[in-house]
């Protein structure tokens, strides 16, 4: 009896005296609902990840059986100057793109937030480019960014500015790609818009009573209150930037068989990985490249999470 009492005493008691009970029916149902995802994750993500890790220690061409080579692939990628080149290009692009994308998306979201009835229409308009196939976006921006006849430079000429050769000048290739990628910013805009709508109005009213101007309200109210969304997009955009492929490949590397012109300023890491895998059939080496990128993303994300603790405010969290 004493033992039973002791056991009961250690059980968690919910407020109001109710004790939690395990509802096996609900648990089974929950697992049932997520089982498809779990199977998909195991088969299409975890399995290939493990296989890729194993293959990164082999010489494998997708045709013959893999042969173990130890850490030779990793040693090779350290010595491969193109890896350094591709990594450098990718990091520079990410540094250019991520802040630009966040600032532009935030400005657009704030404008949308002020639009009254037509807000839904404009949300759709801003989001539609996200639905455009990335290859089509790449092809379209090759025309728009053409140094001589492109729409962007023609527009700049109207205000007396001679635009650069965005697609052919090595120094302007990455900024050109940043402009291209801003086309598909709708997802981020919608996230920011949702976050802005969650900011309580009374905070702005209180700030106004304290004499805050628009800029102060933005800095002291808006930014802290949407910092969770900002942080989320920072991570997602950084990862996307580090995996840049579709548009750059379409614009600067083209179809594998017919492509002759390329620009090493647009040789991003995943493009190099793809070339190694499917142009030269170096699947083992490509797997090692994939794991290096994984580690880089892991480290960058970990740093971002660490740093964010000081800046991100989650409503409902204890101080």
């Amino acid at each position: 009896m004493a033992v039973t009492t002791a056991n009961v005493a250690t059980r968690k008691v919910l407020p109001g005296g109710a004790r939690p009970t395990r509802n096996w029916r609900e648990i089974r149902a929950a697992y049932g609902f997520i089982s498809l995802w779990i199977v998909g994750f195991l088969v299409f993500t975890l399995g290939p990840m493990i296989a890729s890790l194993v293959l990164s220690f082999t010489d494998y061409n997708a045709i013959d059986s893999p042969e173990g080579v130890g850490v030779a692939n990793y040693r090779e990628l350290v010595a491969d100057p193109k890896v350094a080149k591709a990594l450098g290009n990718t990091l520079i692009y990410a540094v250019l793109y991520v802040p630009t994308a966040m600032v532009v998306a935030l400005i657009l979201a704030m404008v949308l937030n002020r639009v009254g009835r037509a807000s839904g229409f404009f949300r759709t308009v801003f989001y539609l480019p996200v639905m455009t196939p990335t290859v089509a976006v790449g092809a379209l921006f090759l025309l728009l960014l053409n140094g001589q006849e492109g729409l962007l430079n023609r527009t700049l000429r109207l205000v007396g500015i001679t635009g650069p050769n965005w697609t052919t000048d090595t120094n302007w290739v990455k900024p050109g790609l940043v402009i291209t990628m801003l086309w598909s910013l709708g997802g981020t805009v919608v996230i920011y818009l949702a976050a802005l709508r969650q900011v309580p109005k009374d905070l702005y009213e209180a700030a106004e009573m304290d004499g805050a101007n628009a800029w102060t309200k933005f800095r002291k109210v808006t930014v802290p209150m949407i910092s969770g969304a900002l942080f989320f997009t920072l991570i997602v955009q950084t990862i996307a930037a580090l995996q840049m492929f579709d548009q750059a490949y379409t614009m600067f590397f083209g179809a594998q068989q017919n492509s002759t012109y390329s620009n090493e300023a647009a040789l991003f890491y995943v493009i190099y990985l793809f070339q190694q895998a499917f142009r030269f059939l170096h699947m083992g080496y490509a797997s090692a490249l994939a794991w290096l990128l994984f580690l880089i993303i892991l480290i960058i994300t970990a740093v971002q999470v660490r740093v964010s603790r000081r800046f991100v405010y989650y409503e409902g969290e204890k101080d």
């Binding site: 993500t45 399995g47 290939p48 990840m49 296989a51 890729s52 293959l55 990164s56 494998y60 997708a62 997602v236 990862i239 580090l242 995996q243 995943v270 990985l273 793809f274 895998a277 699947m283 083992g284 490509a286 797997s287 490249l289 994939a290 794991w291 990128l293 994984f294 993303i297 892991l298 994300t301």
Partner: peptide, 14 residues
Amino acid sequence: AGSVGALALGATSA
């Protein structure tokens, strides 16, 4: 998302 994307290409060699 990072791991899936980063490994998607290499994983096809599985």
